[in-house]
């Protein structure tokens, strides 16, 4: 029973969350904000905290189908997040493009460009599903610490 594994277990109780909007319609973003802000779904219980800077983040929630216009910005932002990090794709858009799937302006699926660890499908997903996704991401994050 070493000290470092103990510290790792403690560290997983403090996942800081950062949201990237990759051209989403804002439906998923509203659900993510709901997850954080409404008393009923309070994810601060898990130690989560939305942070303003990608450099503080541990878990990235990406929503939207990755439009051509935001691609470079999203990739650059993803690079700014320090390791170890976990990516959660929220909504159906990052998986297939959702209702935008045949558009010329959309590059979905997003995992051609960014490694995605957890998919939370839905249009938009329910807050419970997002919380389950974050919980899964925390388990994956534990392995990477």
């Amino acid at each position: 029973m070493g000290l470092i594994p103990n510290f790792k277990n403690i560290a997983t109780r403090s996942p800081w969350i950062y949201r990237i909007n990759a051209g989403s319609c804002n439906g998923c973003d509203v659900e993510m904000a709901t997850t954080a802000l409404i008393p009923r779904y309070d994810i601060e219980r898990l130690g989560c905290q939305y942070c303003g800077s990608p450099k503080h983040a541990d878990i990235v929630l990406i929503s939207g189908p990755l439009t051509v216009r935001v691609k470079d910005a999203v990739l650059r932002m993803y690079e700014e997040i320090p390791d170890p990090k976990v990516t959660v794709a929220v909504g159906v858009c990052p998986i297939s493009g959702g209702i935008f799937r045949e558009s010329y302006a959309v590059l979905a699926p997003i995992d051609q460009y960014i490694p995605i660890d957890v998919n939370v499908p839905g249009c938009p997903p329910r807050p419970q599903a997002i919380i389950a996704g974050v919980a899964k991401a925390i388990a994956i994050w534990r392995e990477r610490l």
């Binding site: 109780r13 601060e44 320090p82």
Partner: peptide, 22 residues
Amino acid sequence: RVGPPLLQPFFDIIKLGFKRTM
């Protein structure tokens, strides 16, 4: 809300120790 555990700031500090500095 329920809120974070009382020791949350300690967890945050320990967590930050595992992250890379850029």
